[in-house]
Amino acid sequence: MEQYELIKINKEDLVNNPAPRIPVCLCLDTSGSMNTIDGGDGVVNGQIVEIDGKKYRASTTGVSRIDRLNEGIKHLFETIRNDDSARFSVEICMVKFDSKAECILPFANIERQVEIPELVASNDAQGNSFMGEGVNLALDLLEARKQEYKDSGVDYMQPWLILMTDGEANGSQIVQQQAIERIERMVGNKKIVVFPIAIGSDAGIDTLKQFSPERQPLKLQDMKYNEFFQFISNMMIAKSNSGDGEKVRILLSDIKGWAEI
């Protein structure tokens, strides 16, 4: 499709859908450690093997964190698409971060996001995890989207940032500090809802905490990615049905199935 055509369609989707939107950014760690086999020992050797034009990660056994994450994200999209309120309200973009931060899925009507990009964990030997850069980019994207809503007269609810990592942030300190301050300001003004999620035992809980001044980071149980994304989509569906702007309430019973408590 022509670029111009695409912009026009996205614009029409934006302005002709009257539903109040919930912009969501999935900000995801794709550092090398995400190749860890989930729920057990052993790390894949990091080699990428190409077979029949498709890329496979070399591993002796098991399913890696990144595989489970991919599966969970697909599940999220499917659930949202199947709900008549959420499919017109929830808008998702995706940012990944390893040795750089990158937007891999821009905002659009969820029906147009037919192909969900597959996350591939970095092959970078240093295992960089530029979380500050990732969060900064996520906030930029969310703010830009909000501005689009405002400019065109589309109602919206406060954006959600879902931040998932299995390690420590090790990007630029300055950028990280900047991102933390931005989040603090936004959370303080109730301009964003942050869900910080830690994967595995090496995740830097303290760093995650800094990115979420109000909500404690939750630790994902082994292999419970689908359960987590089911929870997130339930929250989104409830939100898009409630018409209630600010509050996001989480009950213990909602997170028991996937979080380590």
């Binding site: 009257p18 109040p20 405002k150």
Partner: peptide
């Protein structure tokens, strides 16, 4: 209003804020 302009809130406008503010 929302029935006549299917789904559109009467106060949604360019440069608007949250529903409550509007």
């Amino acid at each position: 209003f929302k029935i006549m302009l299917p789904g559109k809130h009467p106060y949604s406008h360019q440069g608007g804020g949250s529903v409550k503010e509007n």
